Simulated scan of single mutants.
Amino acid sequence: MSAVVFIPARYASTRYPGKPLVELTGATGRKASLIQRSWEAAQGVAGVSRVCVLTDDDRIRDAAEGFGAEVLMTSSQARNGTERCAEALAQLGADPEIVVNLQGDAPLTPPWFLEALIARMQADSAVQMATPVLRTEPGTLANFVTDRREGRVGGTTAVMRGDGTALYFSKEVLPYVGSLEAPPEVWHHVGVYAYRPEALRAYGAWAEGPLERAEGLEQLRFLEHGWPVTCVEVEARGRVFWELNNPVDVARIEAVLQKEGIA
């Protein structure tokens, strides 16, 4: 099965403008931009034939080409990464069997997260769209709760049916946690998606729904239009996963780079 990885990146982020070019310092003192570290993470994924950065911004294009990435330019009308992936799909000429969307703000994404999505779709041709979920460990859950108490929008949680298909995704902590002393099981949604080409094309033709608009979560458009989203449980294997959503996350991610010895 052929699989490609797209890394959508936009400069005009509402919460953190210019964040793809923010430099992160690794364990050796090496400084590399957020988009470079996300691209480097994709290079370690097995079974992928092509990795492309998707952007509408010349600054991001120039930076990405500077560190050796292939760049596909997409329109400024793309409202989210999935729409950007749908535009880029049309530029490939021939369809791959699977398109993986690795968010450009998630440099701590381990390769086995993406590999798990590819394997799940290889095993079941009925799965049109899949995304990883992670059992939330105490430190991450505490960050979720702190962010919400302090008025920041941080990570995303997922609520699922027994068969692993999604009921809902939210930037609130779901289910209700209450006391952190004995919290219910909370699933951290990892911002990676895998699609069949037909699912991407369908998505691009749909209007944005009210839940997607309210939450700012692109995957809700699939649910609002009646398409199942398959959640694939992945394991951290001791790694801490966190996206760069706000300026405060720079220190959090750099702390993980130091701890893990990532240059």
Rank of each mutant, 00 (worst) to 15 (best):
E65P: 00
G162V: 12
E233M: 14
F241V: 08
E235G: 13
R30H: 12
G216I: 08
E137V: 11
E97P: 07
D163F: 03
V250Y: 01
A263S: 14
F113L: 10
G209D: 13
R237I: 08
G209M: 12
V71W: 03
I98A: 08
L180Q: 01
I7G: 01
A205V: 10
L223R: 07
A3C: 08
S2R: 13
R50E: 14
L167S: 06
A166H: 01
E23Y: 09
T140Q: 14
P132H: 04
E97C: 11
D62P: 00
A41M: 06
I35C: 00
R50P: 03
G47Q: 07
I35L: 04
P184M: 03
F113K: 02
R59F: 01
A205K: 14
Q91T: 15
P107R: 06
A3P: 07
P183L: 02
D62A: 13
P8F: 01
Y203L: 11
W206Q: 13
P20T: 04
Y203V: 11
D249W: 01
V45I: 15
R59K: 02
V5Q: 01
Q43C: 10
I35R: 00
S13C: 09
L108P: 09
R59C: 00
L72C: 01
A126P: 09
P183I: 02
V173I: 12
W242N: 08
S33Q: 00
L167F: 02
F113N: 04
D62F: 05
K19P: 03
A199Y: 07
E208R: 13
S33N: 04
V71R: 03
A46H: 14
T131D: 05
Q36E: 15
I118K: 07
A46P: 07
I7V: 10
N143S: 14
P110C: 11
A263P: 15
G26T: 05
E233K: 12
T25Y: 01
M1C: 11
L72I: 15
W227E: 15
E260F: 06
E115P: 10
V53S: 02
A88I: 01
L167G: 02
V229A: 06
F144H: 14
R237W: 12
S2F: 02
V71Y: 00
N245A: 13
Y11D: 11
A130K: 05
M160P: 00
Y16D: 00
D56H: 07
R239P: 06
Q128D: 15
P247G: 07
L174G: 02
G93V: 09
H189F: 13
Q77L: 14
C52F: 14
R152S: 04
G154K: 00
A78T: 11
E70S: 07
